[in-house]
Amino acid sequence: MAIEVEKLNFKYNGKDNMDFSITDLSFKTEENSIYALTGNNGAGKTTILRLLVGLLKPLSGNIKIYGEDLTRNKHHLWRIRQKIGFLFQNPDDQLFAPTIQEDVGFAARNLKLDEGEVQKRVEWALKAVNLLEYKSQSPFNLSWGQKKRAALAGLLVMKPKLLILDEPFANLDFISIYNHLKIIEELRKTEKMTILFTSHNLFFVENWATKVLVIDRGRGIFEGAPSEGLIKSEVRKLLGSYEEIKELIDQNK
């Protein structure tokens, strides 16, 4: 299994009086699969991702990444994190170096690889995301879609086994989403990566993910194949459906 989450509980600052919490969350992700987390705004998707990479500490429960217990290996976090590529929702939160090639090479250098290997990986990662010709440019001058791809390249140099993507399709047009998805899908196949992503875009959740977990206020309300889950009445009621929204718009015209 790539990810095993068992009876995960979390509250911000551990306070009972806070509205938000993750309650008894359990799920498993198979290796080389595409797993989607979906739910409304504020459902807890990003919080779950941050728990999975050890940026937040759960109150109770277990998280295993490729068999290694993240909750019990606090001193070996970096070792476990080397297997994970975590893409932030906003690429400006990730890109920091003066040039794209330096930003992309950052993680590879932290892996203490020799400079030749770093350069090789940087070229490979930039080629994979179609940004090789921009390597000497500042990340600040890129478009949003290019920034997202540059941020992705910065994770690929680590050759992660698991890619965790927080809203990878946010603020991208339909065609850009497809192009973005094509790159990730190609990497999944060639590098045998597991993908876990959050998204509101039900079209891509339904057509790309092999499994989906629907979250409502920190609780999992459905886990299974997207084609089954997204037609369930409680899920449709929670997330809204294309037909339902169209009907509402027509009524208000």
Binding site: V53, L55, W78, R81, Q82, I84, F86, F88, N90, D92, D93, Q94, F96, A97, E102, G105, F106, A107, R109, N110, L111, E115, V118, G154, L155, M158
Partner: peptide
């Protein structure tokens, strides 16, 4: 807030206080 997130993203890529550039 952005700075905090950037720090988290650096940590995720092995940042331990030292920036290594070519």
């Amino acid at each position: 807030e952005r700075g905090e997130k950037l720090y988290e993203s650096l940590k995720m890529r092995g940042f331990s206080g030292k920036i290594t550039l070519a």
